[in-house]
Computed example of a mutant assay.
Amino acid sequence: MKLTKKLVLAAAIVPLALGSASAFAFGGKGDHKGPHGKCGMGMDRGIMKQLDLTDAQKEQFKEMRKASKEEMKAKFEANFEAHKAERQAHQEKVQQLVLADNFDQAAANELAKQMVEKQTERKVKMLEKQHEMLSVLTPEQKTKFVELSKERASKCAEMRKDRN
Score class of each variant (00 low, 15 high):
Asn79Tyr: 10
His32Ser: 06
Leu16Ala: 09
Glu121Leu: 13
Ala23Phe: 00
Ala10Gln: 06
Asp162Arg: 11
Leu127Asp: 13
His36Thr: 09
Gln60Lys: 12
Phe61Met: 03
Ala23His: 09
Ala107Leu: 05
His90Ala: 08
Thr143Gly: 13
Gly42Val: 04
Asp44Trp: 03
Ser154Asn: 15
Lys155Asp: 15
Pro15Phe: 02
Met1Ser: 15
Thr143Gln: 15
Lys155Ala: 14
Lys75Thr: 05
Thr54Phe: 04
Ser22Lys: 04
Met159Ala: 15
Val146Ser: 06
Ala10Leu: 06
Lys33His: 13
Thr138Trp: 02
Met126Leu: 10
Lys73Gly: 12
Glu151Met: 13
Glu151Val: 04
Gln91Ala: 12
Val124Glu: 08
Lys155Met: 08
Gly46Ile: 02
Glu70Asp: 12
Leu148Gln: 09
His90Arg: 09
Arg87Trp: 08
Lys113Pro: 10
Asp31Arg: 12
Ala56Tyr: 02
Phe26Met: 01
Gly30Met: 00
Gln96Lys: 15
Lys38Arg: 14
His131Val: 00
Arg122Gln: 13
Ile13Leu: 10
Lys75His: 12
Leu99Asn: 14
Ser22Glu: 10
Ala112Phe: 05
Thr120Val: 03
Leu7Ala: 11
Ala21Lys: 00
Phe24Arg: 04
Gln57Asp: 08
Glu132Ile: 00
Asp31Leu: 00
Glu77Ile: 00
Cys156Arg: 04
Ala108Asp: 03
Ala107Val: 05
Ala23Thr: 02
Pro139Gly: 02
Ala157Pro: 15
Leu18Ile: 05
Lys6Pro: 11
Glu151Trp: 06
Ser149Ile: 01
Lys129Glu: 07
Glu63Asn: 14
Phe26Trp: 04
Ser20Gly: 08
Gly19Tyr: 01
Glu59Cys: 01
Lys69Arg: 13
Glu71Thr: 15
Arg65Asp: 13
Gly40Lys: 02
Gln60Ile: 01
Lys118Ile: 05
Ser20Ala: 06
Lys161Glu: 15
Gln114Val: 08
Gln96Asn: 14
Ser149His: 08
Asp55Leu: 04
Asn102Trp: 04
Ser149Met: 02
Gln57Ile: 01
Asn109Thr: 03
Ala85Asn: 11
Ala67Cys: 08
Asp52Asn: 11
Ser135Tyr: 04
Val136Ser: 04
Ala12Thr: 10
Lys113Phe: 11
Gly40Glu: 11
Ala21Asn: 06
Pro139His: 00
Met48Leu: 14
Ala100Val: 01
Ser22Trp: 02
Gln105Asp: 10
Leu53His: 02
Lys144Asp: 08
Ala112Gln: 02
Met41Ala: 14
Met72Gly: 12
Gly34Leu: 01
Lys129Arg: 12
Lys161Thr: 09
Glu63Ala: 13
Lys62Asp: 09
Gly46Asn: 13
Lys66Met: 06
Val14Phe: 06
Asn164His: 07
Lys155Arg: 10
Gly40Thr: 07
Ala89Cys: 10
Asp104Ala: 11
Glu63Cys: 04
Cys156Lys: 02
Gln95Ala: 12
Phe103Cys: 09
Met48Val: 10
Glu140Cys: 07
His36Cys: 12
Val8His: 05
Val124Ile: 15
Arg122Ile: 08
Val124Met: 11
Lys144Arg: 11
Lys58Trp: 03
Lys125Gln: 12
